[in-house]
Design a binder for these strands. Structure first.
Lengths: 255, 255
DNA sequence: GCCGGGTGTTCCGGCTGGCGGAACGGTAGT
DNA sequence: ACTACCGTTCCGCCAGCCGGAACACCCGGC
């Protein structure tokens, strides 16, 4: 019926349900789900109960709203654990951290956000291993690095969706300013975050490419407190090295 | 066909595919997926391409194997952000951390593992917020607390699946010993982790209950280095408080 | 109190789209 | 070259998804 062939429309509708649960919206009623996805309440009910049975969705006890279930955490865990990319880049990042005594973050791009998949910390005594996330692109060094080096068409599409919400008073909220910064990042090979996400925190980030498609898949970044380094020092001391590291990883690790 | 009615069998089969990707196994070929789930290669192909289109799955560039995609991270992020439970318990845990100067972890139970959904850290200057996970139950205070207070039938089922893999030389690998510890935990109201997950790390954990179903849904736990507290001190100083905190949270927060 | 609008749930016939066997093209190992 | 596996496509058949309608339920309001 619709454009693409060879896809399971049932599953696609099922995934469309999961798509509803963004960070903004808390929970949905069955009727809401049916209306938003564009299916009947009957179908929505079948899908939702299937999800609930597997803990991908859960009903809130008091409000009765459907929310994402704990099972989604297990998926993310498995994603990190089994990712060949994460496994492959670990030695690089660990070596970099050991030699320069810095903490390097690796983030992957998906849709309109970057997701931190590996962080090398000095004090790694935790039982639980942690991974992290961010909700947008425009206020992070990793996010801007990814945006700067993606295809113009893809960038334009993302730019049209970005709201450029302010996290601090230095967050870029003007599209023209952001475009200019991205152009500068393309020149020098890395992007900056000058206290745009959190006061007192600066960072630089360099893009990771897929050696198969040539597209941007993520970024490596390095953050610092303004108390230890100024942005000038950060760039002078580490920018060259970070870009080099990103190239090395891009050349070796798959995806 | 099969027992339960009112579920979408297409979606169920789709989720069965995701279930394959445990922490152990790295990736699968299409034929493997078809064989393990018990469907034809054709169907598996339709499902998998649908997943790939949405970044829930991705093909590894060099090996050609299918793996979990970045999108799963976004789901987990949304789960944490929109969870009413996580929102509700934040003030309790923050207050506890502020008053006692300790780091309290909150974990949720799903299937055979607990997932850390909130951690109160003193130095919370990070851009990325982190959440974490663990792969089993038997070597964690939170995991043992959850096991100790679940229904006997559910416990027996989980026990039959647990492999009791050793993380340290103090990890409990004998079912009888574990059963005895769980019985003790039921007596005192909390469970212990005596360097069973990591050398030099001890912890205590108390169960969280659903006020609707009365079942265990997770646990709060508190860990410490053996350098700062002995297990005896940990129990004497914090066990009572931790059990109290768990009760307070259980009484107020939904799910 | 009753009633209206909201919820989630179940039943059922129509027909869509998931189903798997078989055949195709590509690549890697022998 | 030959084999063996990979992923992909084509196609006819019928399982099962679909949605309208009717159901039981709960809550707020005239």
């Amino acid at each position: 019926m619709s454009g693409k062939a060879n896809i399971s429309e049932s599953l696609a509708k099922g995934l469309a349900i999961l798509d509803l649960f963004g960070v903004e919206d808390a929970g949905f009623t069955l009727s809401e789900i049916a209306a938003r996805v564009g299916i009947s309440k009957t179908s929505a009910h079948r899908y939702v109960t299937t999800y609930c049975e597997q803990d991908y969705l859960a009903r809130d006890a008091r409000s009765g709203l459907y929310r994402l279930g704990v099972r989604t955490l297990a998926l993310a865990q498995s994603m990190i654990e089994t990712s060949e990319l994460v496994r492959g880049l670990r030695p690089f990042v660990d070596e970099a951290a050991a030699r320069h005594g810095i903490h390097i973050d690796v983030a992957l791009l998906s849709r309109d956000a970057v997701y931190l998949v590996y962080r090398r910390d000095s004090a790694d005594t935790r039982v639980f291993r942690s991974f992290s996330y961010a909700s947008s692109l425009h206020y992070l060094a990793a996010g801007k690095a990814a945006m700067a080096f993606m295809e113009p068409r893809a960038l334009a599409e993302i730019m049209s969706r970005l709201t450029l919400a302010a996290k601090t008073d230095r967050t870029i909220t003007d599209k023209a300013v952001l475009e200019a910064e991205l152009a500068e990042a393309r020149e020098v090979g890395y992007a900056k975050n000058n206290e745009e996400s959190l006061p007192g925190l600066i960072a630089i980030g360099a893009p990771l490419f897929s050696l198969r498609t040539g597209k941007v898949v993520g970024a490596v970044s390095f953050d610092s407190s303004t108390a230890t380094y100024s942005m000038q020092e950060l760039e002078r001391l580490f920018a060259g090295y970070l870009v080099e590291l990103a190239k090395k990883i891009s050349a070796v690790v798959s995806l």
